[in-house]
Design a protein around this nucleic acid. Structure first.
Lengths: 152, 152
DNA sequence: CCGGTGGGTTCCATAAAGGAACTTAGTCAG
DNA sequence: CTGACTAAGTTCCTTTATGGAACCCACCGG
């Protein structure tokens, strides 16, 4: 299967990956959440080549995750801002960060901590059931497949 | 920057991505969480070529996300099972699924729903602050960078 | 006029991917 | 014994994507 066909598969994981499943896209989003908006800054901080970065930013705009907003005329200059759809990806990024902190740390501890301003706590968010508010153990989950052939 | 250098960056997101940032790896993990264990089944359900699949499975074993377990001698046959480190990635997969359900759905609704067996609720987990138990709004978070140069 | 800035695009050599065929070691049916 | 079949990879070849450097365009400030 070609990667370009992955968005058509009836699976929300596959469809999400058709947008953010690329190597560089998640790093672009990490920067976006840290406040980066401009091409040159993404280029410097993400580490992707200019060609790939330009292509990925355009893709994210097309997918509605980033908006390309003019901040200067004469000359035309644009910056990239998270949309609501993009901001909603914070759960994915947070899940990656928390997993990386737990399983990929070196002896210096996590390079970044996150603080919840509304309560002041250093924060590694947890996933809870929206109903019973218990923390999720993946072994307590059952997937109910409504449509196939690829499941998930 | 080469992708192979990404694991050395002092950023938990980048390090997590060095393991799961590949196009096919997350689909392999989706199948693993749904119970798939064998090469042929992964091949059929994930859609990656045999060559890429073999390489990705070997990588996940090396990274400690899957364990390669012999289930037959004569002939030698192996299956791939999630380790604790791998099972802990359910948060990432769930975040992707929930986002995909919300933003990438077609008119037939989500292809899969997940049920929390301990309480019986259909479940789209939410992320909460471990301290105040409030649901996270990304605008309430502040990242505190301890080490650079790449942040996240 | 000269250099600098921001946001890209073009070009080329190298690396990775898709797909089909092949391999290995054994089982089972006739 | 022969031939078909299974599972788990590997090999080979062609197509595609990537990294990196150079280049381009529009403007600004001195």
């Amino acid at each position: 299967m070609r990667w370009s066909e992955i968005g058509g598969v009836p699976c929300s994981v596959a469809r999400a990956l058709s947008v953010v499943g690329d190597r560089w896209v998640m790093l672009v989003l990490r920067e976006a959440f840290l406040g980066t908006r401009r091409f040159e800054d993404f280029h410097e901080r993400v580490g992707a080549s200019r060609r790939v970065l330009a292509e990925r930013l355009a893709g994210l705009v097309e997918d509605g995750v980033l908006a390309r907003v003019r901040y200067s005329e004469r000359p035309d200059r644009f910056e990239y801002r998270l949309t609501d759809k993009g901001r909603d990806l914070h759960t994915v990024l947070t899940a990656l960060r928390v997993w990386g902190d737990r399983w990929m740390a070196d002896d210096q501890g996590p390079p970044v901590t996150v603080v919840h301003r509304t309560c002041g706590a250093a924060m590694d968010p947890v996933m809870v059931c929206p109903d019973c508010r218990d923390e999720i153990d993946p072994r307590d989950l059952t997937a109910v497949v409504h449509r196939g052939p690829v499941r998930g």
